[in-house]
């Protein structure tokens, strides 16, 4: 009896030898329990030790093993050979990122965009430091010096806090490819997550990035980011809620006296 096998076509790029990426084909034993990550591990151990990819947790928590599988951005650990067998599986690095080597992409720009939305709680003291003219009502602290938060207040932003920074949404977003300056789905959703937090007073500090032309206004609601998100964050909703907010602020800026402006 011959062993069942499955073919993988993997986009390979070796920066020291190749001028451009090209596909390499591997035929490996088929095991219905294997994830794509297991298959890559088999290739690296048995067939080609130079195959390069990121992975860590193997359970869809760390967000390291994002790759494009048959055209769809997916986590390698969540993709199973049995869902593709007997067809060939085509594996590429995440789209819209520079390829560092094989399936590894350069995430530097992504990290910078994440940082640009100030993804941390800006409390009343910090908010007033940033803008002394602004009156901020401090959120009361409890007796042990932390903030209480009601389940409903948590529920408001919880969905947007589930992001694991796997970058699948950046790979899914054509606007990202058309305008690499676009802040992008995950970072804008993260900014929204902090803006919605009852402990946070930093929305003014995030406005410049979120409401910039390269912020939410570069989005055309393709919606594919939310489709591929492994954690149901729905970044498309986060972005478009900010467009509605921005439109409202834009209109109000004509009606309201410009208080606090130099």
């Amino acid at each position: 009896m011959t062993e069942q096998t499955i073919k993988l076509e993997i986009l390979r790029y070796n920066p020291e030898a190749d001028n451009e990426p090209s596909f390499g084909t591997f035929e490996i034993p088929y095991n219905e329990a294997w994830s794509l990550l297991d298959a890559l591990e088999y290739i690296k151990d048995e067939l080609d030790s130079s195959l390069t990819y990121r992975w860590s947790c193997r359970m869809a928590v760390c967000g390291s093993c994002g790759m494009v599988v048959n055209g769809r951005p997916q986590l390698g650990c969540e993709t199973f050979l049995r869902d593709h067998y007997p067809n060939t599986i085509k594996v590429e690095p995440l789209a819209n990122f520079p390829i560092e080597k094989d399936l590894i992409v350069d995430a530097t720009g992504f990290i910078e965009k994440l940082e640009s939305v100030k993804p941390y709680i800006i409390d009343a003291v910090d908010a007033m430091k940033a803008n002394p003219a602004k009156k901020v009502k401090e959120t009361p602290k409890n007796e042990i010096g932390t903030y209480n938060q009601k389940p409903a207040e948590l529920g408001l932003f919880k969905q947007f806090s589930m992001c694991i920074n796997c970058m699948l949404c950046y790979s899914a977003c054509p606007q990202m490819g058309l305008n690499p300056m676009f802040t992008g789905p995950a970072a804008l959703a993260l900014g929204h997550r902090y803006n919605l937090d009852s402990r946070d007073h930093g929305s003014d500090e995030r406005t410049e990035v979120i409401q910039d032309k390269n912020g939410v206004w570069s989005c055309t609601f393709v919606g594919y980011c939310s489709e591929v998100c492994p954690k149901n964050v729905d970044p498309a909703a986060a972005i478009n809620q900010n467009k509605a907010q921005g439109a409202q602020d834009w209109a109000l800026s004509f009606l309201m006296p410009r208080k606090g402006e130099k």
Binding site: E205, T207, W217, E261
Partner: peptide, 22 residues
Amino acid sequence: MSMTQAKSARHIEPLLWSLFGA
């Protein structure tokens, strides 16, 4: 209105998007 909001008010996309929504 803060400085950051003033900066973001410089482009007209929010108006065009509102008209698009309407």
